[in-house]
Design a protein around this nucleic acid. Structure first.
Length: 750
RNA sequence: UGGGGUAUCGCCAAGCGGUAAGGCAUUGGUUUUUGGUAUCAACAUUCGGGGGUUCGAAUCCCUCUACCCCAUCCA
């Protein structure tokens, strides 16, 4: 288990530590209504990864509660994806549909508790009754049906006695809840539609909000991890479990940000649009971010897992740069796959002074920085092909390849130089006549010629023609909206590329075509007669980049924000104004503090009571407005461990310089957590402030000696380190040293 | 507009009162028979803005701003 943990793993870790759960159980719960994409991979990696890290289990559950959209082919695709990524789910694949009976019983339970009712409003009426985000909704007149009537209706709904939409089962919660999701959520709807697994048994199907939490509960899930858009649903999740009074341990829901990648789309709807509109070949089109697509393109599971790990898990909506994914696959393949030579745009080279008919050159499959062995035989003869890009008659500055003036090495073979350029009638170079240096053979070079680069080549007779499918980003737009943003050049088919025999004859599936990129034997269309390779990703190319237009640097993002009025404050009522003025005049409290106290009755009365105990308005006001207010955000005043007296005491000790304000905060936190009186805590833990320089000085000297280097840096201008020294001293004294004195002494000593 | 979230480098992302981690990208140097890899170095005096508290604030408090989610009988 790595030391660095995302926030979810921290939550899990804490739950494990506190003994909340005997075992960690997570689940990956897709709806089988589409093909999984790399966003699912993030979720898979997370859920299965957490289970693995904590020695728990992870289930694979098909959330199949909507019979009209789901299909078994998606179930297979989902299983494949999990397997391919290298994970094993615990037990069999689960289906929410397996729990339909249980779920139905719970629904009846809710009715009996008068916490659910059958509503018979129309769809439009329901929407209307729900209200809006700013106005409360109102309850349906059907909400008062008797338990028996509800039970009977539900039974008949289940048996298919009604048409779709005629009735609906709703939870009875709160039609004026600020959380729209809690306005009597729908929990069962009529769907006279057969289910791909349950067949025609049911005419009603549970809704997500009812089914999901209970399915988690049935499976003994401890941590139900989902994406951010379900944050609002968490209240129902808890409501259902609480209301049914299910026994502990019970699952809790946690949310993280879903994955977005630039230049592509991740939503089911948009992906479907691409496939159905024939903008791509199918769900496994190598340009798609689907697992099937990535897989067909040649991505390895390891690279995707590494990618998922590199992007982290957090709650901020974000868009990951596609370059990060490309890095992951390059990084993985670099150490794994053999190098091979391929000429994408062949240019014939005749070696005029080559005497023999053919020779075989043995060449390593891996560069020396890849710790793998293996070699293949490279035929060489008078007639070879090089890439058109590797020859130039008018080379740009810094061009390392073959020119009429500049020799080049044929990788693993000889150095050649251009003797004659043959052009066709339109002036295009169609052939090069070259000379080679017989004594320049790779590994036994005695020619003494220095070349700037070594290029790939293939021998004319033995090389094999192949088709290359080269993919570019699917969209030309970083944040694509729709079809109009598609990159029409996202697929480029190169026919007539020439490739060395080894690539065809070996069993390897992935190769690096040297100086070109990583390629994958097209898993479906490849035949030995017609070899086809998918380009997985290109190599980094700092030469090609030079010609590219520099990415327009965005204008400085620090757009000036409207400067808000300093110390802006809430509108005060007349009564509050009086208090406000009084606080400022009588107690010498600053505007902001006064405003906070004046606008909050609880804080104000807290303040007044505390000041009665100890007449130190400013100190107390600060503590009340900062620390007390913080606690009261979480807990109400009646359920909290402290009283105004606590604060008064603390303020007194601070005023008397018995403790520092830092320690006061610390003590306050202890009181909040465990209760007790401040004085006892200070006494018990020996937190009294040390203000005696003679006591502090040796410690400072010690720390400076231990950190000579940093002291030096400080003296030569790195003033940031001041805080470091203060921190060290305070740490050494357990926070007890009087920081003011420490400040003075450290300044003096340094 | 009510509620729920989120803001730290071009892109991800650590950080939880004491020196602003790391990765990707970018820019230079070294090595290199891949313009690849590896390696070294540079890249946030500042954490959305403004205030307050503190010896000290990305971290605590107040306030403003921007963006995302919620009014499917989808999940």
């Amino acid at each position: 288990m790595s030391i660095k943990r995302d926030f979810l793993r921290k939550i899990v870790e804490e739950d494990v530590k506190s003994g909340k759960y005997k075992e960690v159980t997570t689940r990956f719960p897709p709806e089988p209504n589409g093909f999984p994409h790399i966003g699912h991979a993030k979720s898979i990696a997370l859920n299965f990864g957490i289970a693995k890290d904590f020695g728990g289990k992870c289930n694979l559950r098909m959330d199949d509660t909507n019979p009209t959209t789901e299909d078994t082919k998606y179930v297979e695709a989902l299983k494949d994806a999990v397997n391919w990524l290298g994970f094993e789910w615990s037990g069999d694949v689960r289906f929410t549909s397996d729990y339909f009976d249980k779920l139905y019983e719970w629904a009846k339970e809710l009715i009996k508790m008068e916490k659910a009712y059958v509503d018979s409003l129309s769809e439009d009426e329901i929407r209307e009754y729900r209200g809006t985000v700013t106005t409360a909704g109102k309850r349906s007149k059907y909400a008062d049906r008797s338990v028996d009537e509800n039970l009977e209706l539900l039974e008949r709904m289940k048996n298919g006695e009604f048409k779709d939409g005629e009735h609906i089962l709703r939870a009875k919660i709160d039609m004026s809840s600020p959380n729209m999701k809690m306005r009597d959520p729908l929990i069962y709807r009529i769907r006279n539609h057969s289910h791909f697994r349950a067949g025609d048994k049911w005419a009603i199907y549970p809704m997500y909000d009812f089914a999901h939490c209970l399915s988690d509960y049935i499976e003994g899930v401890s941590h139900s991890i989902c994406t951010l858009e379900f944050e609002n649903n968490r209240d129902i999740y808890n409501w259902v479990i609480d209301t049914l009074e299910l026994e502990h341990p019970r699952p809790y829901q946690h949310e993280f940000a879903r994955l977005n990648i630039n230049y592509t789309v991740m939503s089911k709807r948009k992906l479907l649009e691409l496939v159905e509109g024939d903008y791509v070949s199918s769900w496994d089109d190598p340009r798609l971010p689907t697992i099937a697509g990535l897989r067909r393109r040649g991505y390895t599971p390891e690279s995707i897992l590494n990618f998922c790990e590199s992007i982290g898990v957090a709650k901020a909506n974000s868009v990951v740069d596609i370059a990060q994914l490309e890095f992951a696959i390059r990084d993985d393949l670099n150490l794994k796959v053999p190098r091979v030579m391929c000429v994408t745009k062949p240019l014939k080279v005749t070696i005029a002074n080559y005497k023999g008919s053919q020779e075989d050159i043995e060449a390593s499959l891996y560069p020396k920085d890849v710790p793998k062995d293996g070699s293949r035989v490279l035929p060489f003869s008078k007639e070879i092909y090089i890439n058109q890009d590797d020859f130039s008659q008018n080379p740009p500055k810094g061009y390392f390849r073959l020119t009429p003036q500049q020799p080049v090495r044929l990788k693993y073979a000889y150095i050649i130089e251009c003797k004659e350029v043959v052009t066709n009638e339109s002036g295009e170079v169609i052939e090069i006549v070259a000379n080679y240096y017989p004594d320049s053979k790779s590994g036994e070079d005695k020619s003494g010629i220095k070349v700037k680069s070594a290029i790939q080549w293939v021998e004319a007779n033995s090389s094999i023609e192949a088709e290359l499918r080269v993919y570019d980003r699917l969209y030309k737009n970083e944040a694509p909206n729709g079809i109009e943003d598609l990159n029409e050049n996202s697929l480029q088919v190169i026919k007539g590329a020439l490739i060395e025999p080894y690539a065809i004859n070996s069993n390897e599936e992935r190769f690096q075509f040297e100086r070109e990129g990583y390629f994958y034997k097209e898993p479906i269309d490849y035949t030995n007669e017609k070899p086809i390779f998918n380009k997985i990703v290109s190599l980094k190319d700092s030469w090609a980049k030079k010609d590219l237009p520099k990415k327009v640097t965005k204008e400085p993002k620090k757009e000036s924000q409207k400067p808000s009025k300093s110390g802006e404050m809430a509108e005060l009522s007349d009564n509050q104004k009086v208090i406000f003025e009084n606080l400022i005049k009588e107690h010498n409290i600053n505007n902001q503090l006064a405003s906070i106290l004046a606008t909050d009755d609880t804080l104000y009365s807290f303040f007044v009571t505390a000041v009665n105990e100890h007449k130190s308005a400013v100190t107390i006001a600060n503590m009340v407005a900062n620390d007390v207010s913080k606690e009261l955000k979480v807990n109400s005043i009646d359920e909290v461990n402290f009283t105004p007296k606590t604060i008064a005491l603390l303020a007194k000790m601070v005023d008397e310089e018995l403790i520092s304000s830092k320690i006061a905060k610390e003590v306050f936190e202890i009181v909040v957590k465990d209760g007790g009186s401040p004085e006892d805590i200070v006494e018990e833990k020996g937190l009294k402030q040390i203000s005696n320089p003679e006591e502090i000085l040796p410690i400072i000297k010690d720390i400076i000696t231990q950190n000579q280097e940093k002291a030096e840096q400080y003296r030569s201008g790195n003033k940031k380190l001041f805080g470091f020294f203060i921190g060290q001293v305070l740490k050494a004294t357990g926070g007890k040293a009087n920081p003011k004195i420490v400040n003075e002494l450290v300044t003096q000593e340094l």
